[in-house]
């Protein structure tokens, strides 16, 4: 079988450009041209999807703002929690995960919000407050249950880990303590901002861009639900 190299080359180039979230079709002429072509050329569009699947990627959205790519856990392009921060403690790994899922729950409370295209807003203190309240409600439900034995720390419920961490704290010298929930929320949001999912605003607030919604709606939400079902079985 022979293949026409032009659409394949162009589609691969488009994937390369889309892998860098700061690239914008309006600012990058090549990106703009390739994007215009893929929306009208079915051969190139088919090539785009095939190449993406072959690389362990998914084309989640092709729109005026650019191509949004997604990845699954087994892809070489997937970022593991451990990849972005070495030496996370057991607690930190649980909490960072809860903050990621919690951010999605905070900004997209109803399923309809996942269908829109607007930009949401979140602040470090609000997100921590929202998750802390949810944990307190779980604590009330669990009243009377005993804590897990100390030697099996990973049998502790995730919400207990959250409530064990203070929202804010001070160091001996009066500075902001590092091992607090707000510091951890801040780190997570900062990291998502570096990845182009959020945009920093003044006063520790962030704009949550459409890109994050697409990742949650098309992939992350489903991956997590599958895992939840697998654990529940």
């Amino acid at each position: 079988m022979s293949i026409d190299p032009t659409p394949v080359h162009d589609a691969a180039r488009l994937i390369a450009l889309a892998l860098v979230p700061s690239n914008r079709p309006l600012a990058n002429a090549e990106y703009g041209q390739l994007l215009a072509r893929v929306r009208t050329d079915p051969a190139m569009e088919a090539a785009l999807h095939e190449i993406a699947v072959g690389l362990g990627l998914r084309v989640l959205e092709v729109a005026e703002g650019g191509v949004i790519l997604g990845t699954t856990a087994d892809s070489p392009f997937a970022m593991k929690t451990a990849d972005w921060k070495d030496g996370l403690s057991g607690d930190e790994r649980v909490l960072t995960g809860l903050v990621h899922v919690g951010l999605a729950a905070y900004v997209y409370p109803r399923p309809e919000e996942l269908e829109r295209v607007d930009v949401k807003a979140v602040s470090v203190a609000d997100l921590d407050g929202f998750l802390r309240d949810a944990c307190r409600r779980l604590q009330e439900l669990a009243a009377g249950e005993t804590d897990p034995p100390a030697e099996h720390a990973d049998l502790e419920h995730a919400w207990r880990v959250y409530l064990r961490w203070p929202a804010v704290g001070e160091t001996a010298g009066g500075g902001r303590a590092r091992k607090t929930m707000q510091a951890l929320v801040r780190q997570t949001l900062e990291h998502l901002a570096d990845l182009g999912m959020l945009r920093r605003q003044a006063d520790e607030t962030y704009q949550v861009l459409h890109r994050f919604r697409v990742q949650v709606r098309e992939l992350a939400g489903h991956q997590a639900l599958d895992q939840l079902r697998a654990v529940a079985c």
């Binding site: 699954t72 929690t81 960072t96 999605a104 049998l155 990742q215 992350a220 997590a224």
Partner: peptide, 18 residues
Amino acid sequence: VARDAVTVTDAFVASARG
């Protein structure tokens, strides 16, 4: 429990970061 929660949230994190 924390051990199981991590498997769920890790699956989310791996995709949500793009």
